[in-house]
Computed example of a mutant assay.
Amino acid sequence: MKQKLILFIKSNFSLLAAISFAFLILAVRIKITGSLFFTFLVWNLFLAGLPYLFSQLLKYLNNSNGNKILQLGFFAMWMLFLPNSPYIITDLVHLQNENSIMVWLDLLLVFVYAIIGLLLGLFSMIDVYHVLKSKYNTKNANFFMIYSCLLCGYGIYLGRFLRFNSWDLFTKPQVLLYNIAHSLTNYNVWAMTFAFGGLLYILFWTLQSKLIIKK
């Protein structure tokens, strides 16, 4: 177990360094302003990192022919929490808040957390994409990633405008389903879904293509 942990840290050292940098910027802002306003970014980054954790576990179990039920469970959890990664981009709206008193520092702070959260989501998508390719084929894997990106786009709408969280699927499913049903007739919902979903797929496709070329 200790060796696996060391290997995980080494393979994700750059991500851990980036997260440490994000924490440092937040600490500097707190020191300068005395305000804890942007500390919510830490929680949002934690949620954005969960899909990557689940995808890493899924990839490990898939490569080692591990328990199929566990694989399905981690896959379901990945799907449920994936929208949290691109969602963190929308935290840029908080720059308009009256508590945002150092525009240049606040912009850097939110941007750093948003980029790291987005990268965690993209890396998790690449993990799941390769798992799906190994189980099925490239065509089905690509189709599923498009589908996942569109679900993420809709998930961003649910989180930012309707203020739902991933766990609301279990804590208040009836309220969630009611709001979902009523939102599907709204043109703006579809526009936001395709806009964010399209952006996420383009970023995934670009990053995945670069990795293939590098190999």
Rank of each mutant, 00 (worst) to 15 (best):
M1Q: 15
M1V: 14
Q3W: 12
L5I: 14
L5P: 04
I6W: 06
F8P: 02
K10P: 07
N12M: 02
N12Q: 06
A17C: 13
F21S: 11
F21V: 10
F21T: 09
F23E: 12
A27I: 08
V28G: 08
I30P: 00
I32V: 10
I32T: 06
I32S: 07
T33Q: 05
F37Q: 08
F38W: 03
T39N: 11
F40T: 04
F40H: 09
V42M: 08
F46H: 04
A48R: 00
G49A: 07
L50N: 11
L53S: 09
L57T: 14
L58A: 06
N63H: 13
Q71M: 15
Q71S: 12
L72G: 14
G73C: 05
F75T: 13
A76P: 11
M77P: 12
L80W: 06
P83L: 09
I88C: 01
I88N: 03
L92T: 04
L92E: 05
V93Y: 11
E98S: 15
N99Y: 05
L108H: 10
V110M: 03
V110W: 02
V112S: 08
Y113L: 00
A114V: 06
I115F: 01
I115H: 03
I116G: 04
G117H: 07
L118M: 09
L122R: 04
S124W: 05
S124H: 01
S134L: 14
N137Y: 01
N140D: 11
I146F: 08
Y147A: 14
C149D: 07
L150R: 09
C152S: 14
G153N: 06
G153E: 05
G153K: 03
Y154G: 04
Y154P: 00
G155N: 06
R163G: 05
F164Q: 10
N165H: 13
N165Y: 12
W167T: 02
Q174C: 10
V175T: 05
L176C: 05
Y178P: 02
I180S: 12
W190Q: 09
A191M: 13
F194V: 01
L199Q: 02
L203Y: 07
L207D: 00
Q208N: 13
K210Q: 14
I212L: 15
